[in-house]
Computed example of a mutant assay.
Amino acid sequence: MSVSGRSVIRVLAVDDHPMLREGISAIIDHQPDMQVIGTAENGRQAVELYSALRPDVTLMDLQMPGMDGVEAIRTIKASHPNARIIVLTTYAGDHRAVTALKAGAAGYLLKSALRTELLDTIREIHAGRRRVLAEVATEIALYSDHEQLSTRELEVLRHVSRGRANKRIAVEMNIVEDTVKAHLKNIFAKLDVVDRTQAVTVAARRGIIDL
């Protein structure tokens, strides 16, 4: 498809909020060089519609019911390695961004981004470039040398975020309380915090856990 000899960028918009999908569609369809060809409300629909429509660029939310955005990106990229996907999310945390980019996203934007930034990013990704919002890139650089939490440490931290005491965490995880304390010590060191409240706050801000 083309307009005045120019190729039109065909966009798939994925988000679980109808108003946001409608808003994105209105912004994009107003552009002479791009068009929304489909919308999806969750990751599973996104995978199905991508295969059916083969859009040039996909805008992907991260937090959705059922299959989330990261899993949808992985699934789409497994079958269509050349898929060009931009994450459009409310989360600026470095951990979420790194996870999405490793899954195969070529761009990472916040929903609060300016309209022009969204449109420019769609054009850049379509042209084969990569683009990450500056504040997200700064967060990624800031924590790039930090050691990642292990699976067990993440599990302990999620229990802590639910307000559970060490004794209950030990029972839930079928480990001794001293092991819970050892995990917490490692968590504090890796997140560069001094207590449980700080650990939960920092981990949530960085997108390591959901509250």
Rank of each mutant, 00 (worst) to 15 (best):
G5E: 12
L119I: 06
Q31Y: 04
D68L: 08
G38D: 08
S112P: 01
R131N: 14
K111W: 13
D56R: 05
H159N: 11
T99P: 04
A134E: 14
K185H: 10
V11A: 04
I86G: 03
D145A: 15
A204N: 12
A46I: 00
T99A: 07
I28L: 05
H126M: 01
R196K: 10
P18W: 12
D15W: 03
T151I: 15
S112E: 08
V136T: 10
M19G: 07
A103L: 04
G128K: 05
V156G: 14
A52H: 13
G163W: 04
Q31H: 04
R168V: 15
R129L: 13
L101E: 01
H183F: 14
D195N: 15
I208L: 01
R123W: 03
H183V: 05
I122E: 06
R123A: 02
F188G: 00
I122V: 12
K181A: 11
R164Q: 10
A141H: 12
V202D: 00
Q35Y: 01
D210Q: 11
R152A: 14
V180D: 01
A13F: 02
M34V: 02
D61R: 11
I187Y: 10
T89G: 08
R206P: 00
A40N: 12
A13W: 02
A40Q: 09
G163P: 04
M34D: 02
G23K: 03
E117Q: 14
